[in-house]
Design a protein around this nucleic acid. Sequence first.
DNA 1: AGCTATAGTGTGATGTTATAACATATACAA
DNA 2: TTGTATATGTTATAACATCACACTATAGCT
Lengths: 165, 165
Amino acid sequence: MAKSASFPKPDHDHSRCSASALRKAETICAARKVRLTDIRRDVLEIVWKSHVPVGAYDILAQLNADGGRTAPMAVYRALEFLMENGLVHRLASLNAFIGCAHLNAESGEGHHAAQFLICRACGTAAELESAPLTRALTQAVAERGFTIDSQIVEISGLCPHCAAL
Amino acid sequence: MAKSASFPKPDHDHSRCSASALRKAETICAARKVRLTDIRRDVLEIVWKSHVPVGAYDILAQLNADGGRTAPMAVYRALEFLMENGLVHRLASLNAFIGCAHLNAESGEGHHAAQFLICRACGTAAELESAPLTRALTQAVAERGFTIDSQIVEISGLCPHCAAL
DNA sequence: AGCTATAGTGTGATGTTATAACATATACAA
DNA sequence: TTGTATATGTTATAACATCACACTATAGCT
Ligand SMILES: [Zn+2]
Ligand SMILES: [Zn+2]
Ligand SMILES: [Zn+2]
Ligand SMILES: [Zn+2]
């Protein structure tokens, strides 16, 4: 398995991130035999416009930028689908959504546990995949006889790029 | 330092938890020279009615149960004060609030980092204080050059008592 | 093609959580 | 007492999320 990616650089070619994510999403949906409909694809595309988590109503506004009349419900339904299929994550501390950085067409799994680093300066959120952290967490929980269903780990602070300014 | 407390038992004498928390809160506020006013105390008392996190509007309803006219703002202001002074925590995954289980009149510190276990069956939330977890988290973050401001760790699942049923 | 079951979407209303803005009151110290 | 900072009251509104029900499109079958 690849080493965890570094924090997204402010000047990286993001069109590659976006295009790759969309391509993988198509593949994954085909493999899972679920339908990536227009609205779902549009929402996913908006979410992937950057590494900054975006609110449901922001997505809505972007969908309707050209005078459309999409309702909030449509956005939430699309997000629900995308989350079920592991294509986006929700950040509880921000009430916002971000594209999953660990798409893997091979894995049959839907949503997976994720940890996030969120920069207070640039707003960028990076998905963390730390085995030691997951291990420590699992262990600490198990020691207390608790059975884990789902976890939220969201760390706010300054990303290396913003700290260097 | 004491070993981390176990998950709150369904049948424990909760009036002790509550009374102790309120007493410590008085002490801490006195030490910090901040005012635990009536409304703040009332809100804290409501929060401590159980180990189940409570929503701001639930608190509001309880405050107004006798026909009062307290407004949402008052509750949010009280909660803000209580959080600043480390007396309650907010659970982002539930939009709800819970009394801090690690009150320590000695420590001059206000709010501290906390981790929570939340039972999906009984709703009880227990504050976790795991040094290894904190260490793993700090390390994983530092490795990526990220500077930590605040963290949210909320783990949902089944508590030992509910699992035993 | 035509039928049917299921999944997806449209629409309007409503529910829930949180904050803005400005007026008034209270505590405390000089 | 009188000023100043802190706390609260009040009204409105912002921001986030879901319900309920009607309608439409799609895929699979005959
Ligand atoms: Zn990118
Ligand atoms: Zn940054
Ligand atoms: Zn108790
Ligand atoms: Zn339980």
